[in-house]
Amino acid sequence: MDKPELKNFTKPESIKDYPVGPSFSGGHLVSVNSGWRTFKPVVALDTCTGCYRCYLVCPDGVIVKTEAGKVAVDYDFCKGCGVCAHECPFDAIEMVKEDLQK
């Protein structure tokens, strides 16, 4: 997958430090979305047929096509909505509760 990388950002200390015009290029990401979810999708690679239905319907574009013709999940940006698991025609994706104690 071709996606923007996470960049470091220091919060300005005073109003004078804020830019007055456009200051970043497209795809300027500074924080992940992984803290949003309580369930995470886990792909069963032996059941996955590589139909890419999950890739097509993921609202966040976090499903990655792998070289083996299967899919993987970008857990940094997955919000755990579960659309992929619900739409999978082969039930190859399971929503597993996150271990929040970690």
Binding site: D2, K3, P4, G27, W36, P59, D60, G61, F77
Partner: peptide
């Protein structure tokens, strides 16, 4: 879905989970 670009142009946004 097989031949579309792998590039994500709208990525890392803060929309609610499951946003259509």
């Amino acid at each position: 879905v097989k031949n579309m670009t792998d590039k994500e142009y709208f990525f890392g946004h803060k929309a609610c989970a499951g946003c259509g």
